[in-house]
Structures are given as structure tokens and as C-alpha cells.
Design a protein around this nucleic acid. Structure first.
Lengths: 358, 358
DNA sequence: CTGTTAGCGCATTCAA
DNA sequence: TTGAATGCGCTAACAG
């Protein structure tokens, strides 16, 4: 029954060789292989046997050319260290698979010429999802505009290009409020609001929490958000470079590296300094004190991106708006809450399911 | 100079429309766009202007059909949680990019029918790299055999299919020896040797370390290596289900979750129980005590896979052997070494660069 | 139920 | 230096 895969080499089997071997026409082979109706059972068997026998592997490119679409989604991510992008990718791939689409991945950091890479990508996919402006330069987006669907993830919508984001501002306000409730008075926001829309919105929430209490928020400490950046900041902080009793960090990597340095230096967290982050990475729940942070529905973000891309590809008109996904506060000990205790609080959600405009 | 991208919609620009607009033949357009020689500068400019003007985006499928290859590598991974697969993917993507190849990603866990997914993948790439037997079922591999290059990562070579692995056995022996040097006598290997070749080899090293001292290694505790599995094991361990003064875990996720549970229960690590892992994930250096583990050159593994795949695609004959990449011991405090101290020890390497046969 | 046929858009060979 | 013509392998009418 099963193919013994006779021909290990020889000339590649094509639809013609299969047809010939089965004694039918290529149209019939095509019908059988596409699961088309209206084929006699006996004929079907013959074709299947011939194909299996020849080890026939259809040429995707030929099919794509004929049907006029690639059945593939492109995804452009900055890189893959840390769990954020990986989870996004998982969500994207899973949904794309459900939709019958392949996913072609491009990592911006490994491309000296991103614009070229994205153009090249556009050549072999039906649509592209990209993470923020980092992964999709505005000029490239403009060039693609109108001829290839594009979805921006965690970034601002550009000229009618849709975007999908997690709620940031309200949860940042809730988180900041929570820290203020722990009787902290000198909060410092660590991260660059100009670096990414996410960070910008988080800082906005940070400011809003202060304002609503008649307090004035301090300027942010503008640093990138990798581990080493946190370490450098911690060094300055320990040297007295900044005065603060609470550090609201733009992400967990930053928060964790800073917290580790402080603890190593004998500064207690949270009693002396509160440290909170963003993303709820695995490490956040393993360190002591546990890191208070905000959890985003990252996989959903990816899945939704694949979904919207598919919608656009299959003809839906772009809305030019943003979908906003709700986030959750994750309270652990680093903010001053009871040790070990983990509480989840879901902030009032801005939008659900259908999302809202910007 | 730059294209104003006039046509936002209209019929897609093809090589024909570009040719027409530039007043040349499609052959000339093709030459210009492929950077071919023998084109007058003036002509080149005309073509470029026309293409840019029309917002011309070549159809990859048509090119692939004409040149008879996809210029894409397929990669099949189980999933992407944890840093291992992500790093592998980064290494793979980066090298593939250097080689001018796109990468099409398939995550096995999101595919109800893996065999189908892989066959489908084979349809649109020039070769496939897959992580172990998990991601490449032997029967599918067999079906592909001879008609599409395949490279197995971190798995056993199958019937002449090449594989690329990290050194496991010797470092496992070194690690186990190190634990024994800390005067431990009741070591337990936690992980299923039958689950993956990596784990099998690590257990083999575990056994070897015992044997060489005239000791007898105990049977492994056969459990999967996710966090929850570690937690379940820890519960059993705390209930007295296993007697041991050292736990050699198949990976860091397992080790970390177990260590956390033990510490929470008041069991001291390392004085009462030593815990060591594998992979050197980020968390390993943040927890206290720091986790002693083994670091693999995961990105290199991915890059090498892309390399070999490219070699095979461009005509090199498969060797049917394994490349073995060296690993490093990372000594921290969980094994009983001085707190905070981090030492790197590189075991005698089995192979380097060229790799060795199996 | 099955076969014939005409493209799909590009690269490339052969002439000019 | 350029153009005309051919074919890559497959799908999808349209006939029969």
C-alpha cells in the first residue's frame, strides 16, 4: 500500500510523470491531489499510487504561480532573545497554520539591509506582519502600501496601516498607583518613551497616575531595555546618581537585572527600593522577591495579527485603526506586597474582542 | 528620484508592464533587476524608474519556477517556549540570511498532522532542517529521502541523513563527576533518556561517571522536562518518594522548578540537596543559589544546520554522519561551589569545526 | 467522469 | 546591447 519510494534520485517527478504513470491526464492528477470532487474512486487510487510510487512532491512555486497567491504570511521580528518575540511568533504561527498559511520569518537584527529584506520577503508572501517601526521602516511600509497587506504589531498605525497592540497606558497607571499605595514618593520610570510606542504609553500611564493625585511625575531615565543597560543603570543608582524609592521599569529584563544588582549590593527590595517591570517573563516568578509586573497576551497578539492579515489578504478593507488587547497586573513581592503571594488583577479593559480605534 | 508610488491599486505590475513603460523588452527588465551585466546605463535607469514608478514587486513564485529552486530553507521545531529553540532559530535564520535564503518555519506542536505539514513544507523549500525525531517523523524523513535535503538537529542520524548535535556525554560525565567531588553519594538523574537522544547521552555520561569510580548509577526518574513536571517530582521527592542528596536534571526548566519547590519547603540547596541542570537559561544566573548547568552553543547549532543544508542543496553529497559541537560546564552555587562564584570549564572537546562521525 | 488547452510571471537562450 | 521566443509545473476553464 505504502510507497516504497523506489526512485531515490532520477529526474524529479512532475505532475506529468505522475499522469503518465497512472495513465491519466495531468488535470486528473491535479484534481486528485487537490482533493477535488468528481473523480472515480478507481482513478483516484491509480493516481495516488503513481504519485506515492514516484515520490511525487508538487512544486509549490508552480502552484503559487497558477493560483496567484503564495499561501504564506511574512513575519518580521527584531530578534528572538527573551520570551516576548518567541511567544508572539508561536501565536502567529499557530493561527497561520490553522488558516493554512506558511510563515516566512525575517529577523531584522540579522539583516544589514532591512529594507531590502522586507522587499524581498514581500516577493514571496501574501502579506506581512511586522513588529513596530523597528521591523518595518516607514519608507518600506509606504512602498508596500496598496500592493501588499501589512499589519503592525505593538506599534503605531502608519498611514492607514492597521496595528495591533496590548493595552499599556491604563495598566501602567494602575501599576504606578499601586506602587504609590505602598507609600512610595520618589518613583522613577526607567526606559525610553521615545524608544517604542509601548514604552511611550507606559510612561504616559506613569504620569497619569501621578497627575491624578496631584503629584508631578519625574522625567524618565532614558535607557534601552536590555540586561546590560539595567546593570549600568544600577551602578549609577548605587553610586547615588539617582534618588528614588521605587523603580518602574519598562520591561522585566531591565527590572530583573537592576533588582539583582541592588540585592547584591545589600540594598533591600522592596523595603528600601521597590522594583517593578513588564512582561511577566519566567524569571519574574522565580526570583526572590518575586517581581511585580504586567502580563500581556502576547500569543493572542500574534494570533490576532495572523488573523487580520488573512482578512486583509482575502479582501477585507483595512480599517486603519488599532486593536487593543487587555493586559493584567501581576502582583508579587517586589512592590511591597506580601512575600510569595501572587495576585492577579485585571484592569478595566479598554477594548475586548473587536478592539477600538485609536 | 524616488518613486512616488503612484498606483496604489490597479492591476499588479508585472515584468511586462514595467517593460512596456520603460520601452524595452522583458528580457532587459529581467537583466536589470537581476543585476545582470551588459545593459546600457541609460537603459538601466529607464527600467529602474519604470519599476519604481509602478511599484513593481516581482512575483517570487514565478522566479522560483523559472530558476527551479525556492531560495528558502525550511525549519521544523517543536515549539518556542524557553530559550533553546529560539536561539537555535536565531542562529539558523542569521546564517540562512547570509546565504540569501528565506526561512519558512513550522512548529510541530501547532500541527495536528505533522507529516502533512512537513510534506507541505517540502513543497516550498529547497531543504529542511528539523529538531530531532520529534520534528521529523522517521517515515516522513524516509519519504523525503533522496528528493529533498534534510538535516537533523540534536537527534540521531537516520539512514544516511546528517545530524548536528551538541556534545552531551562527556560534559554529563564531567558534571556528574563534579557533583561526586562535592561528596555526594546518592545522585538521581531526573529526565527520560528515552525521550530524546540528548537526554539519553546525558544519562550515559551520568552512568559513566559512576562506573569510572566503581559506583553504580541508579535508574533515572523518567519524567518529561517541563516546569510542571518538575513541580510534580518535587512534591513526590518532598514526600519522601525518592532518596537523594543530588539531583542531576535533564534541563534547566526542570532543575529550576524543582529547586524552587525545595527551597520553598525549607530544604536547603546545595547543603541538603544539590541540584544541577542543562542549557544555562537566563534564570539560571538570577536565582539564588545560582544554578550549575551546562551551556550549549545553541546558535552555532542552528547556523551549522543552515550551512550544511545549503551545502547539500548546492550539491555536496551527504556524509550520513554527525557534527558534534563542544559544550561548557557553568559552575555556580547550586552544586556546592562557593556562592556567587561563576566559573567556566570547557571539557576536553570531542570535535571541533569539522566534527566527528558517530 | 476525464482530457485538452491556455495561461500564470519570470529567466534565459539564441538571434540580431 | 537588446529583443523574440520558449519553457518552468501547475490550475482551471472548457469540451467531450
Amino acid at each position: 500500500m505504502a510507497g516504497t519510494g523506489t526512485s531515490s534520485s532520477g529526474p524529479r517527478a512532475t505532475i506529468y510523470s505522475v499522469a503518465e504513470r497512472a495513465g491519466v491526464s495531468i488535470a486528473t492528477v491535479s484534481r486528485v491531489l487537490q482533493g477535488g470532487p468528481g473523480v472515480a474512486a478507481a482513478t483516484r487510487e491509480k493516481v495516488l499510487a503513481a504519485a506515492d510510487d514516484l515520490g511525487y512532491l508538487p512544486l509549490g512555486a508552480a502552484r503559487s504561480l497558477a493560483v496567484q497567491h503564495h499561501e504564506a504570511h511574512g513575519l518580521v521580528l527584531p530578534e528572538l532573545s527573551g520570551p516576548y518575540y518567541s511567544e508572539l511568533l508561536m501565536g502567529f504561527e499557530a493561527r497561520a497554520a490553522e488558516l493554512g498559511q506558511s510563515v516566512v520569518l525575517v529577523l531584522a537584527d540579522s539583516r544589514p539591509d532591512l529594507a531590502r529584506a522586507v522587499r524581498q520577503l514581500a516577493t514571496r508572501v501574501d502579506g506581512i506582519a511586522a513588529l513596530g517601526a523597528t521591523a518595518m521602516p516607514p519608507d518600506v511600509a509606504r512602498a508596500l502600501h496598496g500592493r501588499k497587506p501589512v499589519v503592525i504589531i505593538a506599534g503605531d498605525p502608519q498611514e492607514g496601516i492597521e496595528s495591533i497592540v496590548a493595552e499599556n497606558r491604563e495598566s501602567a497607571e494602575a501599576l504606578t498607583s499601586h506602587v504609590l499605595d505602598h507609600d512610595r514618593t520618589r518613583l522613577l520610570f526607567v526606559g525610553d518613551p521615545d524608544g517604542a510606542p509601548d514604552t511611550r504609553d507606559r510612561y504616559a500611564g506613569f504620569v497619569a497616575a501621578h497627575t491624578s493625585r496631584g503629584l508631578e511625575a519625574r522625567d524618565p531615565v532614558r535607557i534601552p531595555f536590555r540586561e546590560r543597560d539595567g546593570e549600568r543603570f544600577a551602578a549609577r543608582f548605587l553610586a547615588g546618581g539617582h534618588e528614588a524609592d521605587a523603580l518602574v521599569c519598562a520591561n522585566d529584563e531591565l527590572a530583573l537585572s537592576i533588582m539583582a544588582r541592588l540585592l547584591d549590593a545589600g540594598v533591600d527590595v522592596p523595603s528600601e527600593v521597590v522594583v517593578v517591570g513588564w512582561d511577566d517573563v519566567m524569571t519574574a516568578r522565580y526570583v526572590r522577591p518575586g517581581l511585580t509586573t504586567v502580563r500581556q497576551p502576547v500569543q493572542d497578539l500574534g494570533a490576532l495579527a495572523a488573523d487580520r492579515l488573512h482578512d486583509l489578504i482575502t479582501g477585507c478593507r483595512p480599517t486603519g485603526a488599532s486593536r487593543v488587547l487587555p493586559t493584567e497586573l501581576v502582583l508579587r513581592a517586589s512592590c511591597g506586597c506580601a512575600q510569595t503571594e501572587t495576585t492577579l488583577v485585571r484592569p478595566k479593559r479598554t477594548a475586548r474582542g473587536r478592539g477600538t480605534d485609536v
